[in-house]
């Protein structure tokens, strides 16, 4: 894989134009979707998943990230200022590994996040999988890309799906994972959602991460580790992140999120490789 990594954006200085914020540098983060040892390929069947060794044809793999920060050599976390493009807007980026192999999705894919940071040395990374509260509960119908994809809407919960991994073609034996904020409340005076009991934003932090050589890997096999995929328990197909959906327990654990009485911990869905 050809990688650009970070480099100094000295062009502004060279041209002598007044970007007074001294120098900044480009930064690019590479993401990859895996299923155990194999790369995720839309429409491919994967076996030996979960506690019961299930086989699934995976047809969707998308997630939003927010609050991306790099750690500089003084040990300070510095926000990555995202470029604006069809996969990035404001503080939100969509990583999209499906290519519409199934009956849903979009052909375009996105495996990287690009932006700028002040010039310097960086050796750590942190981010959240999610959409910031204000935008998660804003009017979805007026949001620009990538927050205008109706397949990532989750309006019955008043927000977006932060993570969407589906199997199959929407038949009854699918197993789907949709994660977003739950337990939300709103009021008509405020005109929308005012708070959510379970924000469900997944926090990832690595003290050492070299953007030039490392990739952020999201692993479906790690996500469903310990889950019984062959035995769908609650009324929903798979885990729809409802606090009542008992299928979600192991997945939330692997995401480091609290679920019912089960406390949160450290996530194992993402790794730096």
């Amino acid at each position: 894989m050809k990688r650009l990594g970070t480099w100094m954006a000295l062009s502004a200085l060279a041209l002598g134009c007044g970007d007074s914020s001294s120098s900044s540098q480009r930064a690019e983060l590479a993401f990859a979707a895996m299923v155990g040892a194999e790369p995720f390929v839309c429409g491919q069947e994967y076996s030996d998943l979960g506690a019961d060794g299930a086989s699934l044809v995976l047809s969707d793999f998308r997630f939003y990230v927010q609050d991306i920060e790099l750690k500089n050599d003084a040990g300070e976390w510095v926000p990555l200022k995202l470029d604006e493009n069809e996969f990035q807007n404001g503080d939100v980026a969509l990583l999209d590994f499906e290519n519409k192999c199934g009956d849903l999705g979009t052909e375009e894919m996105n495996e990287r996040v690009v932006g700028t940071v002040p010039a310097g040395q960086y050796d750590g990374l942190r981010f959240k999988m999610g959409v910031p509260f204000e935008r998660n509960h804003a009017n979805h119908s007026t949001e620009p890309s990538p927050l205008n994809l109706t397949q990532m809407f989750w309006n019955w919960q008043g927000g977006y799906k932060f993570l969407r991994i589906d199997s199959g073609q929407f038949s009854t034996n699918d197993w789907r994972m949709h994660l977003g904020s739950t337990g939300c409340e709103g009021d008509a005076q405020a005109g929308g959602v005012t708070s959510c009991a379970n924000p469900n934003r997944v926090e990832v932090e690595w003290d050492t991460f070299d953007a030039d050589t490392d990739t952020v890997v999201a692993d479906y096999a790690a996500l469903v580790d310990g889950a019984n995929l062959g035995d769908d328990q609650a009324a929903d197909v798979g885990c729809m992140a409802k606090p009542t959906d008992t299928d979600c327990g192991p997945l939330f654990q692997n995401l480091g999120l609290p679920f019912g009485d089960q406390p949160g911990g450290t996530q194992s869905f993402f790794s730096a490789e």
Binding site: F153, N155, G158, G186, A188, M240
Partner: peptide, 17 residues
């Protein structure tokens, strides 16, 4: 959580569940 008719309409339109 659903308090605006504008938002509610998105549920039957785009919901899958």
């Amino acid at each position: 959580a659903v308090v605006r008719l504008e938002d509610q309409a998105l549920v039957p339109m785009f919901g899958t569940d």
